[in-house]
Amino acid sequence: MLRRIPIAGLGLLLAVPALAHGAATEGDAASFDPFAGSIIVAAALAYGVGLRRAANGRRRLVPPLRAVSFMAGCAVFFAALASPLHSQADLYLAAHMVQHIVLVTVAPLLVLVGRPDLLILGVLPRRGRSSPARFARAALRSPTIAAAAHGIAIWAWHAPPLFDAALQNEALHALEHFSFVATALWFWAAVLAATRRASGRIEALIAVLATLIHGGILGALLAFSGRPLYPAYADEAALLGYAPLADQQLAGLIMWVPGGAFYLAVGLWIAFRLIGQETPPYSAAPSGKV
């Protein structure tokens, strides 16, 4: 009964990253963005209200640890979007990469582990009979399609012209972060939902593996490029006097290795679930030494 589409109800959170950039002005060193912050707080509040309401029932809908995870996820979103990391991201590609990695891995996963879908009302029709509605639901639940969408978002925005344009234009930058976070939430929600079903774990694992591989390849391309790919950062580098190529290499490596490690860990967790319950090993005789 509770197996609703886990993405539902996250619309509120999606607005956060998009607006984060809207409010931040260039060169704002403190970079505390009250607007982004307040939306995160609002999401957390909505979740808390839902938690209280659910606690009125007999069964506890969301265990406390999951609630903690949701709050931690909000905190990480907050830290990524409204902290010194954000202002550093305007200066260093590597810092920007850290911000992106956090936005698409740790933060959404922590939020989703809190099962906001159970608490915040769904934004999608629950029982649409029309074939487009069924198709949309199937697509939203499919780790493969979610992984493809997430992959396209990541690769498209790393094309230098788009990436640079986003750096110049705050609205585009907001759109960039929005598409990262939205597809990441979709991706992880579909993966988590698929992992809950025994029959969905293989697909979830393949989706995570594919993302691990293509993310690693993108990181490798950045790390191995013989020239700076993003002119905006090359300008920053000239201004601040650091080597733009080294910055780009570091950014690629961050995406490749620690980023990859995160997908690896999730992939192993899915594999662990896939193996299922372990039957005790066969033993011919009662235990004890001979």
Binding site: L212, G216, W256, L264, A271, I275, P280, P281, S283
Partner: peptide, 28 residues
């Protein structure tokens, strides 16, 4: 190994997980 000592593999789940982990890591 289990046949040689006539005892089930110790840590079956760990071993399977190790197989998967090796597969995943090797692509990096």
């Amino acid at each position: 190994v289990p046949t040689i000592v006539r005892h089930g593999l110790v840590g079956y789940r760990l071993v399977v997980l190790a197989l998967s982990a090796t597969g995943l890591i090797s692509f990096g």
